[in-house]
Design a protein around this nucleic acid. Structure first.
Lengths: 138, 138
DNA sequence: CTAAGACTTGACGCCGACGTCAAGGGCAAG
DNA sequence: CTTGCCCTTGACGTCGGCGTCAAGTCTTAG
């Protein structure tokens, strides 16, 4: 059947290692079925599930937190306790985004100044010119 | 003089541990002066510098990368080799932001559906109702 | 002066998400 | 049957950004 795959196929399709998939299972994030001989069998939608999991890891959540919220993400609704958790993590994530944006802007600034060494926008050169409006003087 | 401070003061003002400050120095990110007896003395702007460093760490850069780009960030312009590095990291950061935004949206979705359990927006309940526009039927 | 605290270097500890090796079992092709 | 590849569990290794003692030195309030 094309509706299930073994660990190597899922690993390739999801872009992760087989070791990572076993680790996710150990952490309670995946629960594949088993063939009689013990090999793992994953359904098709495991690919998307793994991508979601990796997204949460990338967002700074640890295994326990992901395990706590993943059922609610699947269900599309959360119990009160989990809801608070979701809000906490949401806040963390958006705060983190703001930090990343600031770091990104800082790099952009240096890149721009390097590519366009424009004294008009260089604070170190401000206040040394008279109040001339035009770029080439009057 | 108020123009320099010892490590404990900087740590408190920058919101990091003294251990972290010594580590940053070990990684070449800070180069405080020393009193004759060997105690570190930081200038005022070290507070901002530490905040910048922490921002880069939060953005996923490691010590070596930060050490490589920090002089250019200070100077506001970069040598060609460093410029490429800046662009690489910039790309990484904004890709990371996009991932975080997706994770955040996913959490928001669950939060919204939990707070407003609106069948109009619940895919699992779509296509089971006849094409009725009003929420309470005709 | 003295005592308390802030400071120094040095070195080991930690933790989490895997990497990696080891030693075997399962399974389709020829 | 064998060959070769994928799979299994188990267990140890890694790495980076610090935390955390340890043992001694400096500074400053009183």
């Amino acid at each position: 059947m094309s509706g299930s795959m073994r660990i190597g196929v899922l690993a390739e399709r999801a872009g992760v290692s087989t070791r990572a998939l076993r680790y996710y299972e150990e952490q309670g994030l995946l629960s594949p079925e088993r063939t009689p001989s013990g090999q793992r069998l994953y359904p098709e939608d495991a690919v998307e599930r793994v991508e979601i999991i990796r997204g949460f890891y990338a967002a700074g959540l640890n295994s326990a937190t992901i395990a706590a919220i993943l059922p609610s993400v699947d269900a599309g609704r959360a119990e009160p306790g989990v809801l608070e958790r979701l809000r906490t993590e949401r806040t963390r994530i958006f705060a983190s985004i703001a930090e990343l944006q600031e770091a990104g802007r800082r790099l952009d600034q240096v890149i721009r100044l390097t590519v366009h060494p424009d004294p008009e926008h260089c604070p170190a050169l401000r206040g040394q010119e008279p109040a001339a409006a035009g770029p080439a003087g009057p």
